[in-house]
Computed example of a mutant assay.
Amino acid sequence: MQPTFVVLSDLNSASDAALRYTSQLATQLPEGHLVLMHVFQDPLLFPEAALMTPVTTPSRHAVMADLAQRADHLPVPAEPEVTIDTLGLALADAVQRHHPLLLAAGREHPTNLIERVLSNMALPVLQGAHYPLLLVPEESHDPELPHRVVVAADDQPFWLTAPSLALADLFEALNPTTTVVHVAATDGPSKAGIGFDAVRRTGLFGPIDNNSLYEVREEAPADGILHAAAEVNAQLIVVMARPHTLLGGLFHRSVTAQLLRRSPVPVLVLPTTD
């Protein structure tokens, strides 16, 4: 099956950052290509629209032309899609038709596309599909392929979903140097080995040995992960999302939420099974 990356586009600079970064990832795979998906005037994205003074918005045709122009400047084939479905239906349809390797979006500010994705009916779609999510910060002007990757691991075992494991060819092509980061909650005995073994068992991140473990103490989890990522000059942070975490509001209160909002480098969220 042709490796496909679906990029959610708001036609802004944050979306452009996600396009640039994701297209670089797609170049690493034979026949890799992108789908640029824009949800046109989705009432779930803009529930306040009826209460606001109407503003001039581009026509659907103009949006398609804009997406096509962006697609023409990418280093891999890309197809624009404009839908008038709700975001949840649009994502479900995209997953069913394209079976993407991942869904990507740009991070602009707390009310950008990714926040809307996770605050409406799209969340159950993502939770049910178990597809990886990539969030790219707007400041990623010159995307660099992730040759140094930080994988955040806690003290619980996990197993990746099939769509997460489908990224194996991409990671093999990238061949990154991987650092497994564990932030200890206390000064007691280390439990880093549990999460470390789970990461190594996936076989997804290349050679991992005992020198690949980076344990942080006396820091909050998100702070420790970001500190470690900066220390090793990582270009990508990978975090695991358990099903109960997604259902419980992953992107509102968790460590993952803080990383998605604060990380200066892209964050890849991989769904797991319990």
Rank of each mutant, 00 (worst) to 15 (best):
L270H: 01
G128E: 15
A17N: 11
L268P: 09
L36C: 00
Q69C: 02
V269Y: 09
L213F: 04
Q127P: 00
E219H: 04
T186E: 15
T202P: 02
Q24N: 04
A222F: 05
F46P: 00
A18V: 15
P176W: 00
T179D: 00
P43Q: 07
Q258I: 13
T111C: 09
A62R: 05
G248C: 14
I208P: 00
T22W: 05
Y131C: 12
I225W: 11
H147R: 04
P264R: 10
T273W: 02
V136D: 11
Q96F: 07
L11D: 03
A68M: 06
T245S: 15
E139H: 13
E219I: 00
L126A: 12
T186Y: 12
E138Y: 06
P271F: 07
I84L: 08
D66N: 14
A153P: 04
L246M: 10
F46S: 03
L34R: 09
A17W: 15
P189R: 11
P271H: 15
D223Y: 01
R20Y: 06
F46V: 03
P143T: 05
V63P: 03
E48A: 12
R148N: 05
L174I: 03
M52F: 04
L170R: 02
T83L: 02
S190M: 05
D154T: 14
P43Y: 08
T179R: 04
A17H: 12
E218L: 13
R107L: 03
A14M: 12
T27P: 01
I114N: 05
G248H: 13
V199S: 01
S164F: 04
V63D: 08
R107D: 00
E215T: 15
L134C: 09
W159K: 06
D10M: 10
A168Y: 07
T202D: 06
A50G: 04
L102G: 03
A50V: 01
A78I: 10
E172I: 03
G249F: 15
P110Y: 10
T161A: 15
S254K: 11
L165K: 07
L74Y: 07
V149M: 05
H99W: 13
Q96R: 14
G206C: 06
P146W: 01
P100D: 15
L204V: 05
S23D: 10
F251L: 13
V149A: 01
H99P: 05
Q28N: 04
I208L: 00
A94T: 11
S212D: 00
L135M: 13
S190E: 14
P243H: 14
L167Y: 02
S9R: 10
Q156C: 03
L170A: 06
A230G: 14
P30Q: 07
T56D: 15
H227G: 06
H109F: 08
A168E: 09
S9G: 01
L167H: 03
G248I: 15
A222G: 02
V267Q: 13
L51R: 01
G32R: 10
L87E: 10
I237V: 13
L213N: 04
E219N: 00
L87F: 04
S263F: 13
E108D: 12
M52S: 12
L247M: 14
Q41M: 08
Q28W: 01
V39H: 07
H61Y: 10
L247Y: 12
N210I: 02
V63C: 03
E79S: 11
L250T: 02
L123C: 05
V183Y: 09
P271W: 09
E218C: 14
L101K: 05
G88M: 11
N211M: 03
W159R: 00
V183T: 08
E108L: 11
P110H: 14
